[in-house]
Amino acid sequence: MSNETLVSVENLGVRFAVKRGGGWGKASYLYAVDDVSFEIKRGETLAIVGESGSGKTTTALAVARLVEAYQGKVNLDGTDFLSLDDEASRLARAKMQFIFQDPYSSLNPRLRAEQIVREPLDSLSTMDEAEKKEIVDRLFAEVGLRPEQQRLFPHQFSGGQRQRIGIARALATQPDLIICDEAVSALDVAVQAQILNLLRKLQADLNLTYLFISHDLGVVQHMCDSIAVMYMGRVVEHGTRMDLFNNPLHPYTSALLSAVPSVDKARREATKRILIPGDPPDPVNLPAGCRFANRCPVAQDICRSQDPALRDVKGGHKVACHLVGEDAVSPL
């Protein structure tokens, strides 16, 4: 694989104004995504994992400019996607496509499958009908759907088939980057495997780059080259798959990994479940120190007073924790 960086996200931030108690009071902000940075190399997959409310989906939407970021850059192939004007960013969408979580609500019920797959071409290309038809035919074959199914409406497909339509739509404009937002979590396990294998096959065939949003670490382990762990809008740990699975440094990452169920009895007994008590803090009134401090089993005084920065501890393995030293050993 090449070493060329396709996407680099710098200091991305998304905030939502929230009014508490109604009335005319000053709005405070919920920082759904706070200073998030990462890079993805061409042809590789970065997974963003985290619990519900950690900001991973908002990050994905902000990268694709489907929610407005108040700060940060998304460099795609050298140009900052977020600083383009409306029309330029609309045209740039051809290079960056999205696969959605829910295959039942992500397809327009009034359109035939073939119209859904053709939609990006209608909006973004200047091809004539015959060329579009040819591409749609090829895409249906690529994602494993039959040509006769082009005439059907979304409600006539199963969940897995619908997700294949969603994938075909994302491939239509030959994008470099595909953002998969929980692309398989709404499917049952057998179908998940089919779709994941399809995604991997397409990645190999078309040299695609994936930004893969998931809360399912089993899926992540199967799919990706590197992982960013998010908690409360921040990236708390970022490294290769090997780094994270073999040597998780942030206590939150360790807890997440220890929660992965395993059918292997020996492995199950070898891993100690790390329980994290309590709930995440109020996202509007964040604590002064580390956002994980109130649930962290090893939190010290410094954790409650100072916000740890994300820093490189070992050859690209980054972590935001005061207790991880230069030796890159987990504090647990």
Binding site: L66, A94, Q97, E119
Partner: peptide, 12 residues
């Protein structure tokens, strides 16, 4: 989501 999907597909 299908409206977001259309926007992501470049619809005006």
């Amino acid at each position: 989501e299908y409206v977001t999907a259309s926007r992501a597909s470049g619809a005006k």
